[in-house]
């Protein structure tokens, strides 16, 4: 798929290539642990070293997520997040940052419920760059993928260890921005893939696409992020950051003082890992 969209994702991956390094993609759930604290984290991510931001759309039934992201979604919903308020957070973020790409990640039902055309218009207007929708495989491209591409948003596809060479062309047909490689068969925040397997998988994907390749699922530490960023175009870290948010809540689930700094400090460590990766090679 050619011509993209807002161009922020393309520009960001060009910049990373020019700098000769892999990128850090960070995931947080919008509105976790509450909309205001969540916004402070979001706002601080670029300065802490996030190259691309994945912002999770909270959903009651996240069937591909592990306990950490399940809990984050329920915290955010309890604190009053909605898809409309998620778009508001992006709009506010854009007032201070017009460069860092934001990709909304989640499940289809909240978007379907919001209305496809209305959602695409509002997301574009708010400053969203792309979408990753877990339960929309290429078989369902008519639903949201093709309308999103027409609306000028990136639609990022998940490729997995079960996506074989025969199926990959279909998975890569209507996509742009980057390809998200899910490095394990499993849910978020659980097992980690072996480096050798990741290297082989990235090489396999590169034979099928020129799009940048981000690798995620099970990446928790700066060392793991560095190892992935050495072979892929970016490493995605989600559950580990979300767990760090949970670690900074009191018994009633309220944010403890210093939560935002602690979470951003962790992201800074991941960013340093990623930035050191290619240099060390």
């Amino acid at each position: 798929m050619a011509a993209t969209a807002t161009g922020r994702l393309d520009r960001r991956f060009e910049l990373l290539r020019a700098e000769g390094r892999g990128g850090l993609v960070t995931f947080i759930t919008a509105g976790d642990p509450d909309p205001e604290t969540g916004f402070e984290i979001l706002k601080g991510l670029p300065e802490a070293g996030a190259d691309v931001i994945e912002l999770g759309i909270a959903f009651t039934d996240p069937m591909a997520d592990g306990p950490a992201i399940q809990a984050a979604g329920l915290r955010a919903l309890k604190a009053g997040i909605s898809l409309a308020r998620t778009l508001d957070l992006v709009r506010r973020f854009r007032q201070g940052d017009d460069e860092t790409p934001i990709v909304l990640m989640g499940y289809y039902n909240p978007i379907y419920s919001y209305g496809i055309d209305r959602f695409l218009a509002d997301a574009k207007d708010a400053g969203v760059d792309g979408l990753i929708i877990v339960d929309l495989p290429p078989e369902e491209d008519e639903e949201l993928c093709l309308p999103a591409l027409r609306a000028g948003l990136n639609f990022i596809r998940l490729a997995t260890p079960t996506t074989d060479d025969e199926r990959l062309p279909a998975v890569l047909a209507n996509t742009n921005g980057f390809v998200y490689y899910v490095s394990i068969t499993g849910i978020t925040g659980t097992a980690s893939a072996a480096n050798a397997d990741i290297t082989a998988a990235v090489e396999r994907l590169r034979r099928h696409t020129d799009l940048p390749i981000a690798v995620g699922f099970g990446i928790k530490t700066p060392d793991q992020a560095a190892a992935v960023a050495a072979v892929a175009d970016a490493a995605v870290v989600g559950s580990a950051i979300v767990s760090r948010i949970a670690d900074n809540l009191d018994a009633e689930g309220r944010p403890k003082p210093g939560l935002v700094d602690d979470v951003l400090g962790m992201v800074r460590g991941l960013a340093e890992g990623v930035r050191s990766a290619r240099a060390a090679r």
Binding site: A159, T160, T163, D164, V182, G186
Partner: peptide, 12 residues
């Protein structure tokens, strides 16, 4: 109806 599942499951 349809097939609204994660890519990991789709081949299966």
């Amino acid at each position: 109806g349809g097939r609204f599942v994660a890519e990991t499951l789709m081949p299966l």
